[in-house]
Design a protein around this nucleic acid. Structure first.
Lengths: 227, 227
DNA sequence: AAAAGTATGTTGTATTTGCAACGGAATGGA
DNA sequence: TCCATTCCGTTGCAAATACAACATACTTTT
């Protein structure tokens, strides 16, 4: 476990928790780790959850497959972050999502009841941990809201520009990369892949954006581009 | 404040908190109430928040207006529920949303720092309150995920059926009502109002649904209707 | 009860989308 | 290096959508 200290310490879940304390805390939480290969299914719906998942190495997609086989990527979870907390916190809810390994990865499971119960040995970090949990769930909430901002745009073009300009703002640079391949981006924006490609080409022809693989650049920001 | 005890007691925020304790707790939280008329703007983006909002009477829409004036309804908040918690929990985030009164309503403001700080007079309910906060934020998270399930459908018809069948499942009845007028539903599903009307008519003509105003009934559930 | 205002339904049309199919480029083994 | 896969861009076309404009129904006010 010690080799993961760095990633654990930098994570929002263990914010304001010292390195010395982390070891005993992890012990108290009875955390386990599991390894997955690329495209392995980590969670599949419907499933009832008792543990939150922490990505130690690699990365994970949270996806939603519907009745007709359309896949939507709900979120991309890089190392150092948690996923499936919301469904763990609301014990009675069933998971309507799946999680798949975006690449080879190691996932740590932390029993939720151990987080929220002030443990008998009264290690004082539970309070901090709980506050961190709130922050994490709240920011995930905000992330979902942001994604909705893209999804509610009426045309593919608007969705693309909404997404790209958000990424640019996040990167504080007109040049940036995205964590999706074309199919992934199409899934994320809930549009057809070929329609996405068509629109990306059009945008490039019109000189609004440039791209090569996953590297993008926004050339001009006019009325239609500003969020 | 006493006249609101019933609605407060039934709310998830004060779950597992007794009526006797509620009074002193509210005192400790320094809650204030504000009144609004229908269509009044309760919160407008961008704004930085320090208090969570609790709907005592009436109801509220959380909406998102974009650059081009398209409005999307993110959520409908009936009395007894809170809103804008996520943006309050993540202090550093600016609110990219607005809230408007769906009808005449009274809103209680609760300072977030008073919720999470164990108060000097050490009233023992903060822990319960904090756990309730997590649950609330987590379930809002799930609600957003559900909404996304509707939004990611490719056609208006699929969006409508996804939404209606979810409502039916929730009501445990093929007959149910919805908390939106037509424009509201269109905003919620991020489609054009006339396209929505057209598709609703078509669905009714095909005998798949029946509706009159906000009262709906799902007649037949075939492949295309099951979620 | 009339008038004004709002909500809902209807329809025509230009645009956009989803879908299917294909070819070429890039990638990853063997 | 060759082969097999996967990824990406392109295009034609049928279908769905947004938009605008108008008609009708329903509410509210006076």
């Amino acid at each position: 476990m010690e080799n993961f200290f760095k990633i654990l310490m930098s994570s929002p879940l263990f914010d304001e928790i010292g390195e010395n304390e982390l070891s005993s805390l992890l012990n108290c939480l009875a955390a386990k780790t599991v390894k997955y290969e690329k495209n392995d299914i980590i969670l599949s719906s419907p499933e009832k959850l008792r543990s939150i998942r922490f990505v130690l190495t690699g990365s994970v997609y949270v996806v939603q497959d519907d009745f007709w086989g359309n896949r939507t990527i709900i979120a991309y979870i890089p190392a150092g972050n948690t996923f499936a907390e919301a469904f763990t916190c609301c014990e009675d809810e069933y998971l309507p999502l799946s999680a798949v390994a975006a690449e080879e990865c190691e996932i740590m499971l932390i029993d939720y009841s151990r987080i929220i119960k002030n443990c008998p040995s009264s290690c004082s970090f539970h309070n901090t941990l709980i506050k961190n949990m709130i922050k994490i769930v709240a920011s995930k909430n905000i992330m979902l809201t942001r994604k909705m901002e893209h999804l509610t745009k009426r045309t593919t073009r608007e969705k693309i520009l909404s997404f790209l300009s958000f990424r640019a703002a996040e990167a504080e640079n007109t040049k940036f990369s995205i964590p999706f391949d074309r199919q992934g981006l199409a899934d994320y924006l809930a549009v057809d892949r070929s329609a996405l490609s068509r629109e990306l080409s059009a945008l490039q022809n019109e000189g609004i954006i440039k791209y090569r693989k996953n590297a993008f650049e926004i050339m001009s920001l006019n009325d239609k581009t500003i969020r």
